[in-house]
Design a protein around this nucleic acid. Structure first.
Length: 257
DNA sequence: ATGGTCGGGCTCCGA
């Protein structure tokens, strides 16, 4: 059994204690991290290796940053999303781990709508769709996971009216996400928990976690050959309740061997 | 009610 999880840690330096504690308690085999918010020399490699994990990272000063952690070997890394050589934001990496192709994705937030930031988000979704299609064509079991910054439906939003103007719920954002799903990807949470709130993120202010005013924006998409092996999935809210937490909490699935 | 709270890195940006 392979346990795979994605977690936007909102600064890996500020969250090193949380991350190592969670690695020991939850014991995932493969982890996708987002929002490292540090350069390579700030990444807590020693602490992560001491917890029993190899790490591959794509870093940027202060913003973005993604990583893959694994108990096993991390091979054939790809360190950026194809389709725009001028894009220097550290938002994508993929590698082969335990016979799977896995990607850690930090999709642009896109706020406020009507700006170049929103256009960049939609363009990123288009590039991702094109690349996802080529990954499907390879027929290697694949997991695309990360902070997608898209609430796929209103069921993934605590208050659709309050969020109506937000880039995370715009029809164009949802269409971009759906276009990828409809290629043949399986949403690991909704495949096993089709109805109701399955939040993965709660804003820091207004006590939104305590009131469960959350969003579902962190997703694991499985290619058909990975989905055939899906045995369980869920959201581990434990770290979100710790002192000084990330605003996101880990989302996970298990695949049979 | 266009606020509220974080993290990074340096007086404001991104989320």
């Amino acid at each position: 059994m392979l346990k795979i999880a994605t977690w936007n840690v909102n600064s890996v330096k500020a969250r090193t204690g949380h991350l190592t504690r969670w690695l020991k308690e939850f014991a995932p085999d493969i982890v996708m991290l987002q929002e490292l918010k540090c350069l390579d020399d700030g990444f807590p490699r020693l602490e992560i290796e001491a917890a029993g994990y190899n790490a591959a990272i794509v870093c940027q000063k202060a913003y973005n940053g993604v990583a893959l952690l694994a108990k096993g070997k991390i091979e054939q890394p790809l360190l950026s999303l194809p389709g725009d050589k001028l894009d220097e934001q550290a938002r994508y990496m993929e590698a082969t781990i335990a016979g799977l192709r896995v990607a850690s994705i930090y999709l642009p937030n896109g706020n406020p709508i009507g700006t170049d930031k929103f256009a960049y988000k939609l363009k990123f979704l288009e590039r991702l769709a094109e690349h996802a299609q080529s990954l499907l064509a390879s027929e290697v079991p694949t997991v695309l996971a990360g902070d997608w910054n898209v609430c796929p439906t209103n069921e993934d939003v605590w208050d659709p009216k309050a969020m109506a103007g937000d880039a995370l719920v715009q029809p164009e954002s949802r269409a971009g996400f759906r276009r990828i799903v409809y290629q043949g990807w399986t949403d690991a949470i909704r495949a096993l928990h089709p109805h109701g709130a399955q939040y993965t993120y709660w804003d820091y202010f207004q006590n939104r976690y305590e009131r469960d005013h959350g969003l579902r924006i962190d997703h694991l998409l499985l290619s058909p050959r990975a989905a055939d092996r899906l045995s369980d999935s869920g959201i581990d809210k434990t770290p979100r309740g710790w002192e000084k937490p990330s605003d996101h909490t880990p989302v996970w699935c298990t695949l049979t061997a």
